[in-house]
Design a binder for these strands. Sequence first.
DNA 1: GTCTATAGCAAGATAGAC
DNA 2: GTCTATCTTGCTATAGAC
Lengths: 198, 198
Amino acid sequence: MTAAAQVSTNSVRVRDNKRPQLLDSAARYFCQQGYDAAPMRDIAAAAGMKAGSMYYYFPSKEDLLVAVHEEGIRRITAAVTAAIDDAAGPWVRLEAAMSAHLRALLDGGDYARVVIKSLPNERAPARQRLIALRDEYEALFVRLIDDLPLADTVSRRHLRLLVLGAMNWSQSWYRSDGDDPGAIARAFVEIIRKGDSA
Amino acid sequence: MTAAAQVSTNSVRVRDNKRPQLLDSAARYFCQQGYDAAPMRDIAAAAGMKAGSMYYYFPSKEDLLVAVHEEGIRRITAAVTAAIDDAAGPWVRLEAAMSAHLRALLDGGDYARVVIKSLPNERAPARQRLIALRDEYEALFVRLIDDLPLADTVSRRHLRLLVLGAMNWSQSWYRSDGDDPGAIARAFVEIIRKGDSA
DNA sequence: GTCTATAGCAAGATAGAC
DNA sequence: GTCTATCTTGCTATAGAC
């Protein structure tokens, strides 16, 4: 194949590539209906194609889920690291990270939501890989919490689990007409800094 | 029908009633494989019957899930209220409740786990009913947290959401060879009571 | 690249014998 | 009450034309 033919092939590929629409559509359906309940037909239709055509881009439904997860983690990580860069002081940085994490999960679109909602089945080969991806992201919080000035009696590991658990669970109670993610992060940090009044 | 015949009918009913085994089996499968992925055939087989026979006890799979949830909530509620009764002092009572809640979720069998893991699909008619059941249970924590002596700047509502979220999410990281539920509850309470050392 | 058509399978639920 | 047998439906994935 000549160099010119390659360029031509590549530009055709770029122009006709519907992979992004497909991913968007998958993220939306996985988020709203759950992985198992979202049919490939519907995902394809929302991206403007028939079910069979998707397999040109993704060899299986599970691969589609993995791709959505990867993009979701990428977006959450980008939002949180950007927020940390703008903040100074350990507590301010933690609150900024929490605010960005919550915003991504609650108002940040379907990709991030799927990361929390739709882990694949126990025996799915991809499961361990996705868990590893999330663990890698959460390591960010290990460092943030290491920097906090805390009483000696406080377990930093449990603090991390407390904070991440509370944030990830927030999808189950959040309503967009209540507190915004920033207010939730502020309230959570306030609790951790000074709970007891006695 | 005579009274004697009724008694006879009832005792037969009691003796042959496999509803409990069916519920146990459903709880196990819903917990391990998730609601969608658990086939009625397998649930029936583990309870010693064929798939078709289950419909004598439960008119649909969704009804089966509702029954498991109800039993799960009943057990968690019983465990937590019993733990509170033995405890004096607002912080001790909260920690006792958290310890019991965590023990139920993490080491308490399949019923309680299903309550957290397997909420039915968005459009399932039973969904709202199950959420209402859980809300009713969680009202216990409203009272426990109302009794705490807290700094004025602390939002009791957010404290409740923080604590319940962290506990419910713990299923995703808990390993039975690590801290036991009591130790987790202790660590969480310690964080809330005195976080900041500055 | 996208289509149509369909293979191949597994699921929930039902009917009727016993 | 439980069985067998089956209906009906929906799904993922593939094959091959265009």
